[in-house]
Computed example of a mutant assay.
Amino acid sequence: MDKQRENILLAKIRGGDKKAFEALFRQYYPHLCLYTTKVLKNPSAAEEIVQELFVLLWENRKKTKIESSLQNYLFRAVKNHCLNYIKHNQIVNEHSKKVLAQTEKFYSGENIDTQQELFQKIEESISELPEKRQKIFRMSREEGLKYNEIALKLNISVKTVETQIGLAISTLRKKLRHFLIF
């Protein structure tokens, strides 16, 4: 596409012409997806990044200034999005490794006393719940019953079951907060 046609297309897009934007999308979307897939080796992430780029382009159409060619702008933008995606994934992976290491350390033989203390404290905390809440919580967590099954067995509403479980979890979080290292 020559510079003059690009400028006309961009002017139409800035003016809110959806057909012009669709033409731009149809022309560049497949090429940008292919490029991004080669960079990321993840087709679904690649499509998401390219779609996000077009959404941002449309949302910022009035203030976006493209000095170089439209094609260069789009490929440079998608490259930057790929780099951000890669950096973000590296941070997430590092965090996951830290959490995994903490979990492995906690569940190793070194922390058997802490584990036993935690399980004992959990059981004590559940036992301290009001009788009806405790029963509903145990039916859900220990027996693996669904909310509607509990409601039927106890002849109460599903909403009551949801409320009681929510309150039980909230109470347990408060009582066990110093164990919540993750």
Rank of each mutant, 00 (worst) to 15 (best):
M1S: 06
M1A: 10
K3T: 04
K3Q: 08
N7S: 01
N7V: 01
I8C: 09
L9K: 04
K12M: 09
I13L: 00
I13E: 07
D17Q: 06
D17E: 03
A20H: 05
E22V: 00
E22I: 02
A23V: 02
A23Q: 00
H31L: 14
C33P: 03
L34H: 15
T36A: 10
T36F: 02
T37I: 03
T37N: 13
K38R: 01
V39D: 12
V39H: 12
L40F: 07
K41V: 07
K41H: 12
K41S: 11
P43S: 08
P43M: 04
A46W: 04
I49Q: 04
I49N: 06
E52W: 07
F54C: 00
F54M: 01
V55W: 06
V55G: 07
N60C: 12
R61G: 09
T64H: 01
K65Q: 14
I66G: 01
E67L: 08
S68V: 02
S68M: 02
Q71F: 02
L74C: 01
A77T: 12
V78H: 10
N80P: 15
H81N: 15
C82L: 08
I86S: 03
I86L: 11
I86G: 04
Q90E: 13
Q90I: 14
I91T: 08
V92N: 05
N93S: 13
N93M: 13
H95R: 15
S96P: 09
L100N: 15
Q102K: 05
Q102D: 11
F106R: 06
S108G: 03
G109V: 12
G109S: 13
N111L: 11
I112D: 13
I112S: 13
I112Y: 14
I112C: 11
D113M: 09
Q116I: 14
E117N: 10
E117G: 06
L118Q: 00
F119H: 09
E124Q: 14
S125F: 08
E128F: 08
L129D: 01
K132E: 14
R133T: 15
Q134M: 01
Q134S: 08
K135G: 10
K135F: 01
I136G: 02
F137T: 05
R138A: 10
R138Y: 01
M139E: 05
M139A: 09
S140C: 07
R141L: 13
R141Y: 13
E142H: 03
E142G: 05
E143P: 05
E143C: 00
G144H: 03
L145S: 07
K146W: 05
E149M: 05
L152W: 14
K153W: 06
L154F: 09
L154Y: 05
N155S: 02
I156H: 07
S157T: 08
S157L: 06
S157H: 08
V158F: 07
K159C: 00
K159L: 09
V161N: 00
V161H: 00
Q164R: 11
S170T: 06
T171G: 12
T171N: 14
R173P: 11
K174G: 12
R177I: 01
F179G: 11
F179N: 07
F179M: 12
F179T: 12
L180G: 04
F182S: 02
